[in-house]
C-alpha cells in the first residue's frame, strides 16, 4: 500500500491493490487481470454524481481510479468510506458481469421469444417498400452521427440568435450543463 500524502489506509479492501490519498481525493490501483474493464467502468460510473472520476493505466495490468470529491471532505474517514464503497461496487460489477456472461444465451433467448416473436411475418407492402439498393450503406439517416449533432443543441452562433430572442434560455442551459445539483438517489 502506498501512502503518498496525509491519509493512511491500514485496511484496504481486498479488491484494491493500493491506495493513495490527498486531502480531497483518493486513488486506487486495481488489478486488470482480476477485474475486467467493464467492471471498472460500472463501478466508476456509480460515483460520477459525487466525485470527479479519472481512470488511467499506471503500468500494464493495472488500472488506477482517482475519485476526487466534488464537495469538500471534512475527514479522512469520508475518503476511507469512498474506498470501501468503490471496492464493494467493483466486486458487485465484476460478479454481475460474470453472471451476465453466464446467462447470456438465456437472456437472448427470452428476449427474442418475447419481443421478436410477436412481430409476425413482413407484409407484401413491407417487402415492396424495402430498399434493396446499396444506398442504405451510405448512412442516409446519419446513424453514424449523433442525434444531438443533427437535431439537438445548436451551434454557439445559432445559440446567440436564440439568446437574442429568449434571454433566459441560454443561461438555463449553461447552468444545467454544468449542474451538480443536489439530486441523486
Amino acid at each position: 500500500m502506498s501512502t503518498d500524502n496525509q491519509t493512511s489506509f491500514t485496511d484496504i479492501p481486498e479488491a484494491v491493490v493500493s491506495v493513495a490519498a490527498t486531502d480531497r481525493s483518493v486513488s486506487m490501483v486495481v488489478d486488470s487481470e482480476l477485474y475486467p474493464l467493464q467492471a471498472v467502468y460500472g463501478a466508476s460510473y456509480i460515483f460520477i454524481d459525487r466525485c470527479y472520476v479519472f481512470i488511467d493505466r499506471p503500468e500494464p495490468g493495472k488500472y488506477r481510479v482517482t475519485l476526487t470529491a466534488k464537495e469538500s471532505v471534512e475527514e479522512a474517514e469520508a475518503l476511507r468510506q469512498l474506498v470501501g464503497e468503490y471496492a464493494n461496487e467493483l466486486l458487485s460489477c465484476a460478479w454481475r458481469h460474470q453472471v451476465t456472461q453466464d446467462n447470456r444465451v438465456a437472456i437472448e433467448t427470452v428476449t427474442v421469444q418475447a419481443i421478436a416473436g410477436a412481430m409476425g411475418e413482413p407484409s407484401l407492402d413491407d417487402l415492396a417498400d424495402f430498399d434493396f439498393t446499396d444506398e442504405a450503406l451510405d448512412d442516409p439517416l446519419g446513424i453514424a452521427q449523433s442525434w444531438e449533432d443533427k437535431h439537438g443543441r445548436k451551434s454557439p452562433a445559432e445559440k446567440e440568435q436564440a439568446k437574442a430572442k429568449v434571454p433566459e434560455g441560454e443561461a438555463a442551459e449553461a447552468t444545467e450543463a454544468a449542474s451538480t445539483e443536489e439530486a441523486s438517489a
Binding site: Y45, I48, Y52, V53, F54, K70, A178, T180
Partner: peptide, 24 residues
Amino acid sequence: AAARQIIGEFGNFVLGLTIDRGGV
C-alpha cells in the same frame, strides 16, 4: 472561479460518453 468544476465535470463527461458507447 469554476475551473475545478469545469475540468472535473469534463472528465466525468468523457467517462460517461465512453461508457455510453460500450467502452473500449
